[in-house]
Design a protein around this nucleic acid. Structure first.
Lengths: 175, 175
DNA sequence: GTCTATAGTCCGATAGAC
DNA sequence: GTCTATCGGACTATAGAC
């Protein structure tokens, strides 16, 4: 993962071959593909723990809470994770922004986070389409707040940004 | 496009080679790649006209209208397009649902529709992050309503479904 | 670890439309 | 003469089969 990120930054994602990544990591090409399904996946290893955080936050929310409020808590918790790994998050995003294939992978990861949260909401008795709607709206807020944060080089407080963005979504949809 | 869709349905997306598509269409492999950047793109040719419809609907909305109401009109207009091409839309979606690579491509197309609408909103004086937030929320509604419609084999009225989904989003975020 | 299929690129050639 | 469409062959890297 480290070798891949370095090379993607140094010479760009497309210009880096798996052979080069493997060499720098002291492995063979074949071993790389044992761990990562493809060349993109190496940048998204962290998505699984993020999903666990989101799902467990939803799972442990008070039953009485409105679904969208639960999603909001989960997304705010996710924000702290990026804040804590500021440097790595910014590097990783700088690579993704430059490559459409990586953007595709990022979008499907985000969609899968939304699906996981929606699934947990349904398990707690929330019906469709409300479960998916809340989850997708929450992910949209995360995406947009994160983008602002990155554009500001991570200098603002992401959690704060997320809260403000949720408030703006509420205002926009209420009109 | 026709040859590709047929083959993707007959034997699956992954099991179809570009050589086979080209042969059925009476072309060579090379010519296929002249028109489509990759094997997936052939299923998303229609996205451009959809984008034009969305953007022009946003562009011609009354200036006084709230941004989210404008987006809602655009998404409802898009719904009619799918309703009118019911058969083709359902076939295409059945292929996409079976393949993660195609889902990735679909997500980036949806994101690009959102970006185009947000761009048009900004041109009309709507500030960020409101422009992106309205556009992304609208696309989320389209995605979820479309999914319900497909699950019901296109028997419900998609425009109606979209209106209901917008109302549910408003209710969910208001809480 | 070895072997292989195929996606996708790059070079260019050819031929018809106007 | 220019534009555009098709075709050909060689090539590389990804990714899967075994």
């Amino acid at each position: 993962m480290q070798a891949a990120l370095e090379l993607y930054i140094e010479r760009g994602f497309e210009q880096t071959t798996v052979a080069e990544i493997a060499k720098r990591a002291g492995l063979t090409e074949r071993t790389f593909f044992r761990y990562f399904a493809d060349k993109r996946e190496v940048l998204f290893w962290g998505a699984m723990s993020l999903q666990e955080l989101l799902v467990s936050t939803v799972a442990t929310a008070p039953e009485s809470e409105a679904p969208f409020a639960t999603i909001r808590s989960a997304i705010e918790a996710a924000g702290s994770v990026f804040q804590d790994r500021r440097e790595g998050a910014l590097q990783r995003q700088s690579v993704i922004t430059l490559n459409p294939e990586l953007q595709e992978r990022e979008l499907i990861k985000l969609a899968s986070l939304a699906a996981a949260m929606a699934g947990e909401l349904r398990r707690r008795g929330v019906a469709e389409p409300n479960a998916s709607l809340s989850a997708e709206a929450g992910i949209a807020v995360l995406k947009i707040a994160f983008e602002s944060w990155v554009n500001d080089k991570g200098e603002m407080d992401l959690s704060q940004l997320i809260r403000e963005t949720f408030d703006k979504l509420r205002a926009a949809t209420a009109g």
